[in-house]
Nucleic acid binder design. Structure first.
Lengths: 129, 129
DNA sequence: ATAATAACGATAATAGTTACTATAATTATA
DNA sequence: TATAATTATAGTAACTATTATCGTTATTAT
């Protein structure tokens, strides 16, 4: 019901998400955007990140260790999460479209989508051993 | 280095996890185990749930809305999470073994495992509409 | 039985996130 | 362009989930 209004802070957050190839957490976004808006509030970052997710302009990625990351790339793709450092990395594996139907066999509900996360050790952590 | 000692509370938590077909949160486990141990501490529940996960006797399931669920079924399988009520349900889809290799193409790291979560509307929520 | 040590219950502390409120920025209207 | 209406912000308080602390209790070894 309420109308969306432009804000420079939100624009900056969106730009940061789209330009960064890593998948920043809310706190990382906060630190990054503070370069441009030194006294932006952490609450503003959270509010806008959630808003962008609701608008479909960003994706929320939850990792098992509790970390929540954000991704400006909204086209469906899968992620890798390093068991050692927790970093989240894009994978090139194309989305498995038919798998939703396969999962729906013998299931009394509607399956619309899925997310997949791969785990292991990233390049950086392999080296530092 | 420290030696594991038996505790009746941990046994009760393990039993509850194995006997329940739903995937309780820490708080649900807390409420359940209180039937048998009325003054068990929530901290004890958390400590033991994490311990069981570390021992490989339980699995932690993180959902995007922030809820953390636990599963006593440790054999690899996939889950469905209802977008409306948040309930987590087991799926019968057998694990995709070869997909780890497929995901590892053009990836400079080691992929060891993956987790997959399906989303949509559960049977119960379909009815109540 | 006694000693050693891990686990417990109770509670405090922490981390991540959301809610609140007065002020500032944006948009619509005259 | 000035003014009014309304959303967004910064700053802070509050909240939720989880972990840490610590004196006491339960379990295990001697």
């Amino acid at each position: 019901m309420t109308v969306l209004k432009y804000s420079r802070q939100r624009e900056s957050i969106k730009e940061l998400l789209n330009s960064s190839c890593d998948h920043p957490t809310a706190d990382m976004v906060y630190m990054g955007v503070r370069q441009e808006f030194p006294n932006i509030s952490l609450g503003t970052v959270y509010r806008n990140l959630n808003l962008l997710v609701d608008l479909g302009e960003a994706v929320k990625i939850t990792t098992p260790n509790g970390g929540v990351h954000f991704d400006g790339r909204t086209a469906p793709h899968y992620h890798f999460c390093c068991n050692k450092c927790g970093e989240v990395i894009d994978l090139e594996l194309e989305e498995l479209g038919c798998i939703n139907d396969a999962a729906g066999k013998n299931f009394d509900g509607i399956i619309e989508s899925h997310s997949m996360m791969f785990y292991g050790t990233c390049k950086k952590c392999l080296k530092s051993n």
